[in-house]
């Protein structure tokens, strides 16, 4: 797989980012490097190796159905770049 400019624009859209032309070129170079490294790893035969998803063997890490650890609205809104008394505010986007 080769990273070209059309893939870059697709990723740009999916990540909701806007890149300048020079940034796009830079990113293209970086991503190609990353892919090359992955391709290098792909040379290894991994047929009998399960993908590693979990770093330990734990299972059924679950909790009782109880209400706890809520945060205060004031605290929750404190870090928001834009807000009013009750809500987070975001640029108007209708899906």
């Amino acid at each position: 797989m080769k990273i070209n400019q059309s893939l870059i624009s697709k990723l740009e859209h999916l990540a909701r980012l806007e890149l300048s032309n020079s940034e796009k070129e830079e990113i293209q170079k970086d991503l190609n490097n990353i892919l090359q490294m992955v391709e290098k790893m792909n040379e290894l035969n991994t047929d009998d190796v399960e993908p590693l998803v979990y770093i330990n063997e734990q299972q059924n890490v679950w909790r009782e159905d109880k209400i706890a650890n809520q945060v205060d609205r004031k605290d929750a809104l404190r870090n928001a770049p834009d807000k009013n008394e009750q809500f987070f505010k975001v640029p108007k986007v209708i899906k």
Binding site: Q86, F87, F88, V90, K92, I94
Partner: peptide, 8 residues
Amino acid sequence: DPEHSLVD
């Protein structure tokens, strides 16, 4: 809000 969407 005319300029923003509000998030709950």
